[in-house]
Each structure stands twice: as structure tokens, then as C-alpha cells.
Simulated scan of single mutants.
Amino acid sequence: MKRDIQTAGAPPAVGLYGSIKNLAASLVSHLHTRLELFAIEFAEEKLRLTSLLVGVILALFFSFMTLILAVLFIIAAYWDTPYRLHAVAILAVLFLAGAGITGAMVRARLKSGPRLFEASLAELYKDRQQLNSP
């Protein structure tokens, strides 16, 4: 009877089995923490990309509507003159230049974004360094 009381409040089992059990519990806990970090970073990245996509779609919509109305206005203003084809050609060149500049800006922004799972990879690197140190 005294033996049951000691095992209920006793420290973890010693020996090979107890050490393996404690090591497994530590590994599972460590893995759980790292997986939670991955999940949080994935959710943050998903929100960032979603908001970026919504912003791009809205900007494109308003830009296209503005461009269409501006082009119609300029073409209507030059309709009765001999320069109407020149006006259309100049507008086409301006739109092409705008598309090139905008494409370069979007490309630069995508390259400058944070690496996916950067914080998780840094934590795993620290873990590996700690395991390799004596």
C-alpha cells in the first residue's frame, strides 16, 4: 500500500525506459511548437497575399476605368482633326510604357517580400546549432 502512494507522487521513472519516455515527450512537445509556428506563418502569408490580390484587383479596375474614359475623351477631342490617329498612337505608347513600369514595380515587390516560413527556418537553425554544440 505504501508502494502505491510513492509511485503516485514520485518523480518520473529513472532508467532507460524513463529516459526514452522523457526524450520522446520532449521531442513531441518541440515538434508541436514548431508546427504551430509553421501554421501561424502560413496563415499570415495567406492573409498578406489575399490582401495584396484584392488591392491589385481594385487598383486595376479603377485604373482601367480611368484609362478608358481618358482615351474616349482624347479621341473625341481630336475626332474632327487630322491628328486623331496620332492621338491614338501616342496613347498606345503611353499605355505600353505604363504597363512596363507597373510590371517592373510588381516584380520588384514580389522579390522583396519576406521568405516563406523565414521565422520557422531561423528557429530550426537555432535548434540545430544547439544540438550540435557540446
Rank of each mutant, 00 (worst) to 15 (best):
Gly113Ala: 15
Phe95Ala: 10
Ala70Glu: 03
His30Tyr: 08
Ala8Thr: 11
Val88Gln: 02
Leu69Gly: 00
Thr66Gly: 07
Ala43Gln: 12
Ile74Glu: 00
Gln130Ala: 11
Ile57Thr: 12
Leu110Trp: 07
Phe95Ile: 11
Gln6Gly: 02
Ser63Thr: 15
Leu16Trp: 05
Glu44Ser: 07
Phe38Lys: 06
Arg107Val: 08
Ile57Cys: 04
Arg107Ala: 10
Leu49Tyr: 03
Lys2Phe: 14
Ala92Phe: 11
Leu52Glu: 09
Val106His: 04
Leu27Glu: 09
Leu23Arg: 12
Ile68Ser: 06
Ile40Glu: 14
Leu124Cys: 03
Ala108Asp: 03
Phe95Val: 09
Gln130Leu: 10
Ile101Gln: 01
Ile90Tyr: 04
Leu85Arg: 08
Ala87Arg: 00
Pro11Asp: 15
Leu121Ser: 07
Val14His: 07
Leu31Phe: 13
Ile101Asn: 00
Thr102Ser: 12
Ala13His: 03
Leu85Phe: 15
Leu124Gln: 05
Arg128Lys: 13
Tyr17Glu: 15
Leu53Asn: 06
Ile68Leu: 14
Ala70Gly: 01
Ser63Cys: 07
Ser51His: 12
Thr7Tyr: 14
Met105Ser: 07
Leu58Ser: 06
Leu121Ala: 14
Val54Ser: 08
Glu36Arg: 10
Leu35Val: 13
Ser133Arg: 13
Tyr83Trp: 14
Glu36Met: 15
Val54Ile: 13
Leu47Gln: 15
Thr50Val: 07
Ala77His: 08
Leu69Phe: 11
Gln6Phe: 10
Ala119Val: 12
Leu16Thr: 14
Arg48Gln: 10
His32Leu: 06
Gly55Ala: 02
Arg48Gly: 02
Ile57Asn: 03
Arg34Val: 14
Ser133Glu: 11
Leu91Asp: 01
Gly100Arg: 04
Leu131Thr: 01
Val56Asn: 07
Ile57Gly: 01
Phe42His: 13
Ala76Glu: 06
